[in-house]
Every structure is written in structure tokens, then in C-alpha cells.
Nucleic acid binder design. Structure first.
Lengths: 337, 337
DNA sequence: ACGGTTTACTCAAACGTTTGCATAGCCTGA
DNA sequence: TCAGGCTATGCAAACGTTTGAGTAAACCGT
């Protein structure tokens, strides 16, 4: 017999029924000690291992979590994934991965595949270009819970984990104000990104309280390309009111902005203070890092999202109708490189 | 009926047998056109979807690849993973992920989990601390092919994809020699790493041809921590023979080395030229990037590894005993940031 | 009209495990 | 002694799909 040993096999050899073997292996109380021992003994001898696919099939549960991210190689997401994997692994779950490349079709296809694989739950950071959420709504019918991560769709009754970038931005801007900055510019990301909105809202709220109201000409947007970043920087630096600080959308944008500013002979963090978001490892290697960066703790967020998903899975079995939705906000923190 | 529709369900409603339905759905030639239509029709109406777990179970195939990396968040690996996922996705395979954190036990456990999940094949970059390869050998019994990636164990008869860092190093050193450098130091990684050996071998071979033979005092090793990097740099800079170029183990090491050198008022890439490996995105943001960096194309390597694994899977079904082993070497390339 | 092929379908087993229910044997207490 | 209650086990169905083997009916040419 070259095939791996099965419960049936063990049963036959011991002249008992498969059900007894199954129960013996699970230490079921109604199985005699003697039989239990014999079963365990033989199982070890044959180095029996349960066929998980059979169990998945039978139990309608795969102990697998689906994770869908726009990109697997981007630092923020890969940190998150690392946190997810660690948390999942600790709870004996496996992780099935997919990357959407910010393509709605691909995202749909991945969701489909994961549904077919019967993952128990899904963590997803939606694609920038996804405008239709049917593929996520559909999962409800299949009883597959979703935890949205970082990029959150505008849907009612969803679970999510994200960083409150509005609050983070308020903190950040307040810090700048306290340091005496009066004219603070912002290089924001594409308007339709939720992340951009949050930053903008925080920026406005923080400034709104102060006499020097919000000035739209101090907001530039970038498409996140290098050229876009330069252009936005140029726009801010040539504004009528001289900015003394610039809030950049993230560290990459900040570094480009700094690069541009240096070419214009501006003294970084003296003439103009640059602050941003992310806390990439880069910062410690560059000579002119942003003065402050808002860390979003992607690893922690990933962990948190996983824990929530696992909780949902546990609950799902017991109380079918659970109407409280997790809306977890991880606090960001100002880092001074 | 709240449960998802099954083949049986369709069969019952149409008063035909499940086998007919199954074959109809697969466009089996022996099913009448009329019946086929009726089946497809009803399947669509009920929005039938095959239960993959049942199929996995029945076919002993999961269309899933296992990927084990030391870390999911490190740039090199996450790029590789991105390549793997893209290649797998294109071939309708899913990817199950695990990170070993360079821990042998965890690696073993992940292999175990993946075997239980009945992944069809595995791509693995082994942990630094793995000294025993039984868990990989064991997979042969289960007919699960492995493709080793980048970090390759010393085992006979294995498939692997890696970058020939020896050749890359030879190229790199030759380039330095051509530029007139006479005394070239090296900051190498931990000796037991294969990656370190390759770099060393390349270094020696490149220098061996020249009159200025290989000088052991020009080799420092680092444990890859920041302090280790500084220390190694110090060692090289204070060597009796004044080095005019330093080959660093990777970009991170190089950046630390450069940082240290700058503190010692050394003019980067003038007094001493720094070169390294990786081509991290960092390089373009830092003021003093390594003058040359050897790109290993992790994304491409990941793709390649996946393609090989898929080929193995196809072959495995037909010719059980295939004795040719893939040893794919991806060529590295010198990049001048 | 009859042997033989083709067409279109059914049957039943198989994949490996779990689990509700049945039951045989034994013990216990009144 | 017997009802009742354990203890240890077996039976069989179920999960959903695929597939080899079998077969009834229709069709063919002669």
C-alpha cells in the first residue's frame, strides 16, 4: 500500500470500526482506554495523518483566511501581511493571499477564487479603482465574514480596522502650530482616496480652530508619481503666502518633496519643515528625513484585523445574528526620526 | 433551502442522475444537447457553484501552492512573493503563505501545515537557522514537489531558482578593477549563509586573476545588525592597506557603512567607492547611494520559480520518474543609481 | 428483422472523515 | 431478579463530486 494510511486502514487492521478509530484519535470519552491505546499505537506506527481535505469538506471549514491586498510588495501592505500571518499562525490558521494590483476585475476574481476555496473569512484592503462592492456583499450569502483593512468602502454594517488618519493629522498639525508655524501647506494624494480625505479633514479641523483659517491654495494634490510630487511641491513653494511647513501624503512623497526643495536651495526643516506619514525604514538612512512622520503601525493593524476576524468566526458558529460591528481604530503616533 | 445548490439538487429537480448533471456541466460529449441545455439553464438559475472542497478532496489536488519565506515584510521577499502570486494567479492557482522568521521549528510547523492542507507544491526560501532538512525530504513521500528559492540547502537532487551572486560579484569586482581600484574590501554577511559564500567566492575569483592577490584582512563580516555593519566598516577603513572600494553585503549594509564613513569625513564614492547588492528603492532617495548595486530581480525569480513548480506539477501526473532537476540561475545585473 | 454500433443516460462506488443513533454487555441497587 | 444506567462499540448516513462500468433505446445497413 503506497497510499497514505487512513482511518479505515487502521480500523481494518485492528478489527474495529472506523468510527471507533476516529473517536479514539480524538480522545472521545466513550472509548475504552485499551482501544484508545491500541489505536494511538498503530496510528503512530503507520505514521497516520488525517486527510485535511476530507475534514475541510466534511466540516465545511478550512481554517484558512483569505487576504487580499492591492500589492504584496509595498512596504505598508507587506508589514500588514506579516502581522496577519503571525496572528493567524498563532491560532493555527493558514493564509491564502491575493493581490489586486488595484484592478477591480482582478479583485473580483480573487474574491471568487477565495470563496470557491471556502476560506473561513477574508481580510481585504480594497483596490483604489473599485467602485462596485457587489463581490463583497455577495460574501454575506456565503456566510464568509469580511474585515476591511485600511482602505474601507463606504458601506453600512461592515467590520474594519484602520488608522484614524484624521486624528493623526490633527495631532501632526497641532504640533506644527505649537512650534509656531503659521502657514502650513499640504501635499495630498488623489482626492478619491479615503486616505486623502482623512488627511484633508484632519488638516482642516486642526486649522479651523485657529484664526489663520484654512486656505485652499495651500493644498496641492499629487498622483503619487515622482513628477506629480515635484509639481505639487513647486506649487506650494511658489504660493503667495510663504509656507513654513509642508505635510506630505506619505514618506515617499515627502522624500521627493525634500529632494525638490533642496534643489531650490531651501534648507530642509529650517526654512521649511517637512512632515509626513509612514515611518519607512528609509527615513533613518536619508540625510534629510521628514521632521515628523505619523506611524500607522501596519503590522499591528494586521494583527488586530486578524484577531477580529477570528472572533467573528467563533461567534458566527454560536450566535448567527450578531449586530455589533467592529470599527477598530488603531491610534497613530508621531515619530521624530 | 438556504444551503447552496448542489449537483444532487439540480439532478433531483430535473429528474436525472447526478452523474449526468456533472457531465453536462463539464460538456461531456456523451450528454445530449437538450439535457445539457436544461442543466446549464437550471444551474444558472440556481446560481450553482461547485464545492471546491469536495473537488479537492475527490481529485486529490487543491490548485494551491505553498510559499514559505523567512519574512513576508522584507523587501526582497515581498517582491518575490508578488512575482509568485502573479504567476500563480495567471495559472489559476492560489497561494498559501507562511513566514518562518528564520526559525527552524516554525519552518517545520509550516511545512507540516501545508502538507496537511495538501498544497500541490511548495516554494521555499529556507530559514537561516535550518540545519536539518528532514521536513523537506519528507515531502517527497507525499509527492509534493519543492522548488527552493534564493536560499538553497545543500541537498542532492533538488530544484531551485537563484541568482548567481558569484557571477554577479565577479562582474562587480571586475568593474571596480577596470575603474582602477587596487585595494577592494568586502563587508560580507554571516559565513554560514550561502549568499555570503557566493559573494566571497566571486570576490576571490575576480581578484585571483589579478596580481594583487586576495588579502584576507580586507574581508570583514557583519551579523547584519547596525552595529555589526559599523564595526565591519571600521575594520576595513582602518586596515593597513587603504581600501578605495568596499563591496557591501547588501544595500542596508552599504547604507550603514556609508553613514559610518561619512562621520569619519570620508568622501563617499570619491575617497572610497561603495557598491552593494539589491537595488532597493531607498537608493534613489538617499544622497549618497552605493555607486553600483547588483540587482537580483526578486520579482522575476519568484515568477520563474512558480513556472518551474507548475511545470513539475504537470509532469508529475504523467511521468512519475523525472530525473532532471531544474537549476535555474537568474542573471543579476549591475545598476548604477 | 436482426446483429451491431451509437447515443444518452443511470448506477454505484469512491475519496476520508465525523457523528447521531442504536445496541450489546455489564454493573448496580432495591 | 429485573429495571435502569453505564460503558464501549458498531452502523450508516452525510458532506459533493467524479468516473468506470453497465444498459436501454434508437438507429444503421444489409
Amino acid at each position: 500500500m503506497s497510499n497514505p494510511p487512513t482511518i479505515k486502514e487502521i480500523a481494518k487492521r485492528l478489527n474495529i470500526s472506523p468510527s471507533t478509530v476516529s473517536r479514539a484519535l480524538h480522545d472521545h470519552p466513550s472509548i475504552g482506554l485499551r482501544t484508545k491505546m491500541r489505536v494511538h499505537q498503530l496510528a503512530k506506527e503507520l505514521s497516520y495523518e488525517p486527510n485535511q481535505t476530507a475534514i475541510f469538506f466534511q466540516q465545511r471549514k478550512t481554517y484558512t483566511l483569505g487576504v487580499i491586498m492591492p500589492s504584496l510588495s509595498e512596504a505598508f501592505f507587506s508589514s500588514a501581511i506579516s502581522g496577519i500571518e503571525d496572528a493567524a499562525n498563532k491560532n493555527r490558521y493558514s493564509v491564502l493571499m491575493g493581490q489586486s494590483h488595484d484592478d477591480e476585475q482582478r479583485e473580483k476574481q480573487i474574491v471568487e477564487t477565495m470563496k470557491n476555496h471556502r476560506v473561513d473569512g477574508i481580510i481585504v484592503s480594497i483596490s483604489k479603482n473599485t467602485v462596485n462592492y457587489d463581490h463583497f456583499e455577495m460574501l454575506k450569502k456565503y456566510n464568509i465574514p469580511i474585515v476591511f483593512f485600511d482602505r474601507i468602502p463606504k458601506l453600512p454594517n461592515i467590520h474594519y480596522v484602520a488608522c484614524d488618519m484624521e486624528a493623526g493629522t490633527i495631532q501632526l498639525v497641532n504640533h506644527l502650530l505649537k512650534d509656531g508655524h503659521k502657514v502650513i501647506g499640504m501635499i495630498n494624494g488623489p482626492e478619491k482616496l479615503y486616505a486623502s480625505q482623512q488627511r484633508l479633514d484632519g488638516y482642516i479641523k486642526a486649522l479651523g480652530k485657529k484664526p489663520l483659517k484654512f486656505d485652499p491654495s495651500l493644498i496641492a494634490t499629487t498622483d503619487l508619481t515622482c513628477e506629480g510630487n515635484f509639481q505639487a511641491t513647486q506649487q506650494l513653494l511658489s504660493a503667495k503666502r510663504k509656507v513654513t511647513a509642508i505635510v506630505a501624503f506619505n514618506d515617499y512623497v515627502a522624500l521627493d518633496a525634500i529632494k525638490y526643495a533642496r534643489e531650490k536651495k531651501i534648507k530642509i526643516n529650517q526654512d521649511v519643515t517637512f512632515v509626513s506619514y509612514a515611518n519607512l525604514p528609509i527615513s533613518s538612512y536619508t540625510d534629510f528625513p521628514p521632521a515628523i512622520t505619523v506611524d500607522q503601525f501596519p503590522y499591528l493593524q494586521g494583527q488586530k484585523a486578524t484577531e477580529i476576524l477570528l472572533e467573528l468566526l467563533e461567534k458566527g458558529d454560536k450566535e448567527q445574528e450578531e449586530t455589533t460591528y467592529y470599527k477598530i481604530i488603531v491610534e497613530s503616533k508621531l515619530i521624530f526620526p
